[in-house]
Design a protein around this nucleic acid. Structure first.
Lengths: 122, 122
DNA sequence: TTTTCACATGAATACTTATTCATACGATAC
DNA sequence: GTATCGTATGAATAAGTATTCATGTGAAAA
């Protein structure tokens, strides 16, 4: 018998049923886990991380970001859209420009903890 | 003139040069940002988030995880490999089984803060 | 009104990646 | 040794996505 098959035999024989039951009950619901994965997925891109690291320091317009990242404006706008849709950044108009900033403090927390993790090497 | 062109004119005319300079200097180096993006990218998958949420509760063998997630063993192993390579989980053998657990506390921190963010709806 | 400017966006392309299938591997039991 | 069990992995497929190019949009300036 192999755990490949998700049948009843496997469920009671080849592993720790009590523990599995316990963990299954304690886990968050699927919607939350989907949202969580989506959040991290949006954070998990080099360009978007650079945008967030910039906005972490200051509110900036699209053109500022374009210059800081050294990439074309279309690419930056596309990624800003992804970040806006995920409610990770917010935007406001000022004259001809659109100014972007981080939406809330959780984002900076995540970036800070993430940085700590990768800096410690582990 | 448009910021599409990343030429010298654009760099000095159409945005806030001092601010851009300042932010550019304050930003982390590229290697760190690449590592950070990679970390979040690995966290940004539904299956892997479910694995981590399970391991957050208890050390578990592959077969346990297979049962909890209700997916085939190969898929779980593949994702565990990704998590291992990213140093997000660690493994040890016990008899015939391989037991997995979270590698360090930063990971649980990230999951916790991330959960807070998505739960608040922001 | 017409032009210009900063930004947004649709389509296309190239690249990445999650899952499945089949199979391999290493250790234990027989 | 041989069989079995838990886990790992290579190849293939299908789905997702970042970037570029070209163009659209809305507002301000001329």
């Amino acid at each position: 018998m192999n755990c490949n098959d998700n049948d009843e035999n496997c469920r009671t024989a080849c592993f720790h049923p009590d523990l599995v039951e316990q963990v299954r009950d304690a886990m968050p619901g699927e919607p939350l886990q989907l949202d969580l994965a989506k959040l991290f997925k949006v954070l998990g891109d080099h360009t978007r991380i650079r945008i967030l690291n910039a906005l972490y320091r200051s509110e900036l317009c699209v053109c500022d970001l374009t210059s800081i990242l050294g990439m074309n404006q279309s690419a930056v706008s596309h990624q800003l859209r992804v970040l806006r849709d995920a409610k990770i950044v917010r935007s406001r108009k000022q004259g001809k420009n659109v100014l972007y900033s981080l939406d809330d403090s959780h984002i900076s927390d995540l970036i800070r903890v993430g940085c700590e993790h990768v800096q410690e090497g582990t």
